[in-house]
């Protein structure tokens, strides 16, 4: 439940990384790699101690998602500009001041590198 945001994640994140590793495919994220399961950003997005995007968003392949935010689907069609997507995840309150979505970049919930990887991944959804 709401350990969603707590940090008893050492083992969980390990598990998440392993899971991602298990489905790692040899080469490359082509744009139509739907779900992007081989992308490192996915593990970060799913990790309860990192992105924990599933706390609020349905994401294909993710277990027991919340529904506070909209499902993350058709992202490229809706965000032709990657920078806009980056801005939403960096600090959602610049777009909606009342947003409940944590400012992952601005508050260093994710490092700049992690944030980039998450944006790469989410863009494939």
């Amino acid at each position: 439940m709401i350990e969603t945001f707590s940090r008893k994640v050492a083992t969980l994140s390990g598990a998440a990384l392993l899971a991602a590793g298990a489905v790692l495919t040899p080469l490359g994220a082509s744009a139509d790699n739907h779900g992007g399961s081989e992308m490192p950003g996915k593990a970060i997005a799913f990790d309860r101690g990192k992105g924990n995007c599933l706390a609020c968003h349905h994401i294909e392949g993710g277990q027991s998602p919340g529904n506070i935010g909209p499902p993350l689907v058709a992202m490229k069609a809706r965000y032709p500009e990657r920078a806009k997507l980056h801005a939403q995840i960096y600090d959602a309150t610049t777009i909606n001041p009342e947003s409940a979505m944590p400012p992952f970049g601005k508050h260093y919930v994710l490092s700049p590198e992690e944030l980039d990887l998450v944006v790469d991944y989410v863009w494939t959804l």
Binding site: M1, G66, E98
Partner: peptide
């Protein structure tokens, strides 16, 4: 760090699901 007020969870989003809660 996650930038929530009490009201975000219990007024604005009361009734919605945060993970499984």
């Amino acid at each position: 760090q996650l930038n929530f007020s009490c009201a975000h969870c219990h007024v604005q989003n009361g009734g919605l699901v945060l993970r499984t809660e």
